[in-house]
Design a protein around this nucleic acid. Structure first.
Lengths: 228, 228
DNA sequence: ATGGTTCATATTGTCAACAAAATTCGGGAT
DNA sequence: ATCCCGAATTTTGTTGACAATATGAACCAT
C-alpha cells in the first residue's frame, strides 16, 4: 500500500511532491469543496497549500490524467462536471471491468487468508443488511469491491476501474442505499462471493455484471439534484 | 536526431503546447527511437524540440498519465517497459472493453453511412486477406476496431481502450500477422461485422471477445525478442 | 438602459537562473 | 585488480520574474 512519509492532512513535514498536491486538490473535489465547473486558480492554491505554482501546475496535469479536471488553454483548470449520461457511460465500462475482475478472482487459487477476508466481508455486509445500517454497508461495499479487484491481481484492470469509479464519489447521495436497493445489492454480493469461492469464473463474471448493471439502473433513476 | 518542431498533426503556426510536445515524445517512444527503460533527459529534449524545460516537464506528466513513461522522484522520466505478462494483463482488459464497444455498436441504430463504412472496411480486409497483403490488413484492422469504438458512442470506453492499446504499438513485430493468424483474425471480423449489422449485441460482444482473446493468445506465444 | 470599445487588472504561459539531488569519475588503500 | 570514498559534473527540483492572454470595469454613443 502507501508507505513512507507522506504526511497527509493540512501540515507537511517534508516538502510536498506534485503527487501530494494533486491528492489534496482531489480530496477538495470529491468532498465538494470545489464545485464542478469551478475554475481552480493557481495563485489561490499556492496560498492554501504553500507550494509554488509549478507544483500546482504539474498537479493539474496529474488530475487531468485521472479525469477529475479539464485543462483548457489560457484558462487553466476546471473541475470536471459529469452529467447523468456521463455517469452511465462510465457505468457500462465499470460493468465489464468489474466483471472481469470477478472472473479473474475466481480463476485464481485464493489463499486461505484471502478466502477468509471475502467470507468475513460478506458476513459483515449480511449483518449490516439485517440491522439496516446503511452507512456501514456502504463502507463494506466499497471494501468488498476493492478486495475482489485486489484478488484478481491485474493492476491495469484495477487502474481502469479506479478511473471510472472516482466520479461516483463526487455525487451527493443523501443515503447511498435505500432498504430495498440495499437488499438487492447484497443479494448480488452473495452470488458473487459464492461463485468466486467456488472457483466459477463464468458465474462470477455474470453475477458481477448483473450486480453493477443493477447499480447503474439505480444511478439512472436518481433525481437531478444528486448530480452537481 | 529529428528535424524541426512546429506543425504537428493539428498543426497551427502557434508555438507548441505541452500537449504537442507530449505527442512528439510519444511518437519517439512508439517508433522505438526511445527504448524502454531509457531515461529521458529534459535538457536533451529542450535541444531537440526547441522548447523550455517546463513544457517538457508538463509533457512528461501527460505521458505518465497515459502510461507511456514513469516519473520517479529526482530521477526524471523513464520510458515504461512492458513485460509479456503486462501485455497479457492489458489484453484481458482490452478483451472486455472491446467486447463492450462491439455490444454497444450493435445496440445503436447505425446510420446508413456508418453501416456502409463497416461493410467497406470488411470488404477491403477480405481483399487484403485474399491477396495476403499483411501490411494493408494491419492498417485496415486498426481502422476497423477504431470504427467500432466510434460507433459505440461511449467516449470513456474509447479512452480506456486507447490506454491498453498503445503499448501494443511499441512491439517490434516483423510482420504483425502470419498467413494463418491473418485468416483466423479476419474470420473473427466477419462474425463481428455480421452481428453488429444484424443488431445482435450479445453475439457481437461474444464474437469480439473471442477475437481479442485469440489475438492475446498470439501475443502470448511471441518470442522474447519482440518485447523490448 | 443597451451594446460596444478601451483600458486596467487578474490569470495563465513561458523561460532562465539558482538550489538540491543524483550520477559519474578519479584516486587511494587494500 | 577491486572496492570505497569524495569531488566534479550532470540532471532534476523549485522559485521568481516577465510576457501573453483572458477577464472585468468604466466609459461612450445610440
Amino acid at each position: 500500500m502507501l508507505a513512507e512519509d507522506e504526511e497527509i492532512g493540512s501540515g507537511q513535514g517534508r516538502t510536498a511532491t506534485p503527487a501530494d498536491v494533486a491528492e489534496q486538490i482531489k480530496s477538495g473535489i470529491v468532498s465538494g469543496r470545489f464545485a464542478p465547473g469551478q475554475r481552480l486558480i493557481e495563485s489561490d492554491l499556492t496560498g492554501d497549500l504553500k507550494v509554488g505554482r509549478s507544483k500546482i501546475r504539474e498537479a493539474f496535469r496529474i488530475l487531468a490524467g485521472e479525469g477529475l479536471i479539464e485543462i483548457v488553454a489560457n484558462r487553466g483548470a476546471l473541475v470536471r462536471r459529469h452529467s447523468r449520461e456521463d455517469l452511465l457511460s462510465m457505468g457500462r465500462a465499470r460493468e465489464v471491468l468489474e466483471g472481469l475482475a470477478a472472473r479473474m478472482a475466481a480463476e485464481t487459487p485464493l489463499s486461505d487468508d484471502q478466502r477468509g477476508r471475502l467470507r468475513d466481508l460478506q458476513a459483515r455486509m449480511d449483518a449490516a443488511e439485517e440491522a439496516n445500517e446503511i452507512r456501514t454497508y456502504d463502507t463494506l461495499n466499497q471494501a468488498y469491491h476493492r478486495a475482489i479487484v485486489e484478488f484478481a491481481g491485474n493492476p491495469y484492470v484495477a487502474e481502469l476501474i479506479e478511473k471510472v469509479r472516482v466520479p461516483l464519489l463526487g455525487l451527493r447521495l443523501p443515503n447511498g442505499f435505500s432498504a430495498a436497493t440495499l437488499e438487492q445489492s447484497n443479494e448480488g454480493h452473495r452470488f458473487i462471493t459464492h461463485a468466486i469461492l467456488a472457483g466459477a469464473p463464468e458465474a462470477a463474471e455474470a453475477a458481477m455484471r448483473a450486480h453493477v448493471r443493477s447499480g447503474n439502473a439505480t444511478t439512472a433513476s436518481l433525481p437531478d439534484e444528486v448530480f452537481r
